[in-house]
């Protein structure tokens, strides 16, 4: 498979992809890095000047940053907790034989295919709206006071919406992992006298551990960048109550036109994402050898 000619061809074939991605990575990244050291506001063109670490100082000491960092952590952590626990339980349930397995499976994974703006708007208007939402109707039906979810518990509501979108992902992957578990291994354990509980903890959990790690890492990458859900539901508010890092940087750069500050924030976001990425890449890389 490997003659000089085929290796030369391989280099040629791979280069468009590599060059494009290289450009996509290097050009904007270096621009972000460069802007982050400039005083640069789109409203004051021609006033750019080098300011050293000022943008970083402002960004990192801004109380909004601390709030956004917390919100990001809560959002990511909350969704991860709900989706992995819920996903594991759901996967275990759906791995049992029952009537209509295929249909239920389709129902469960459906939310993953709903575009973020639609799911956010649907939850916001049709369910969480304090006047016409389904939850409000339900509360009134039971004689309770309707609750304004997005005003009273904005972050919690967003966590809920995002969890609804990502629960199918976790379920699907964990279900696939469960189904790839060798039945004979379970039967062997049963022959060896392991009861249902020990089978679960000694065989299924270790088998699922790997898939759960993958779910957590991949979701983290995506959850750090949650944006549309916030944009269409709360706009980050009230105040900064539901602003995450991505949204904060967006506001700073595209709403306040502060390119320098936004870029400094971008660099911070990249560093945070990289920490997660390193773990994820290790796992995937290991798999590559197998």
């Amino acid at each position: 498979m490997a003659t000089k000619a085929s290796r030369a061809a391989a280099r040629l074939m791979i280069s468009p992809a590599v060059l494009l991605l290289l450009g996509w990575m290097i050009v904007p990244l270096s621009m972000t890095l460069y802007f982050s050291f400039l005083r640069y506001n789109l409203l004051m063109p021609g006033m750019e000047e080098f300011t050293g670490w000022t943008n970083y100082r402002f960004f990192l000491t801004d109380p909004a940053f601390t709030a956004a960092l917390w919100n990001t952590l809560l959002l990511v952590g909350g969704v991860l907790l709900i989706t992995t626990v819920g996903g594991t339980l759901l996967a275990l349930l759906m791995d049992q034989p029952f009537w209509g397995q295929g249909i239920v499976r389709i129902l469960v994974i459906a939310p993953f295919f709903v575009m973020p703006t639609v799911s956010a708007l649907v939850w916001k208007n049709m369910f969480m709206n304090p006047v016409n939402g389904l939850f409000a109707h339900l509360a009134k039906f039971f004689g309770l006071q309707p609750y304004d979810f997005l005003a009273q518990a904005p972050l919690g509501s967003i966590i809920f919406i995002v969890s609804w979108q990502w629960l199918p992902f976790a379920t699907l992957i964990l279900l696939t992992a469960l189904q790839s578990l060798d039945q004979e291994q379970l039967e062997a354990a049963e022959m060896d006298g392991a009861g249902p509980l020990s089978r679960f903890f000694y065989i299924m959990v270790p088998h699922l551990a790997r898939a759960i790690t993958v779910v957590i890492l991949i979701q983290t990458i995506f959850l750090l960048s949650v944006f549309a859900e916030i944009l269409v539901t709360t706009n980050g508010g009230p105040g900064v109550a539901s602003t995450n890092l991505t949204y904060l940087i967006y506001m700073q750069s595209l709403l306040q036109f502060d390119v320098g500050g936004g870029s400094a924030g971008g660099v911070v976001a990249i560093i945070l994402a990289n920490i997660v990425a390193i773990f994820l890449m290790r796992m995937i890389g290991k798999n590559l050898e197998a």
């Binding site: 904007p28 621009m31 802007f35 890092l245 994402a273 990289n274």
Partner: peptide
């Protein structure tokens, strides 16, 4: 290495390059 590197570009948070892409 090339494969892993390609993957790593996917992990770049979009907001990190929002400003330059917008300006470009």
């Amino acid at each position: 290495d090339v494969l892993m590197w390609m993957l790593s570009t996917k992990m770049l948070p979009p907001v990190g390059v929002l400003v330059p892409i917008y300006l470009i």
